[in-house]
């Protein structure tokens, strides 16, 4: 189970731009709409499976494809310390 780190703030910018701000390090990240949806769902406490099903339905994509893409995103986020993985 992944959780968003507490010091991370998600913000929508103008014209479909999305940002994540790390209040502890001062680093900031530009994310696309899909990644923003994933991080926002994590912030709301959603489980990975639910996020995948929701995105696959919303975009009309195969769940396996979405799951692989989301897993790749979360690995990057974990490397950057933006999310934590809980047992």
């Amino acid at each position: 189970m992944y959780r968003l780190r507490q010091g991370l703030r998600l913000r929508r910018g103008p014209s479909e731009t999305f940002w994540a701000f790390d209040l502890e390090s001062g680093e900031h990240y530009e994310v696309n709409g899909t990644a923003f949806a994933v991080l926002e769902a994590l912030e709301g406490g959603a489980e990975l499976d639910m996020i995948v099903v929701t995105l696959a339905d919303e975009y009309g994509k195969c769940e396996d494809t979405v799951r692989a893409d989301v897993a790749e995103l979360l690995e990057m986020c974990e490397t950057e310390g933006l999310v934590t993985r809980e047992a």
Binding site: E27, Y29, E30, V31, T34, Y59, G60, L73
Partner: peptide
């Protein structure tokens, strides 16, 4: 909607 692979880029 058009699907975009989730992406994050450090600034």
């Amino acid at each position: 909607k058009t699907y975009e692979k989730p992406a994050i880029k450090k600034q």
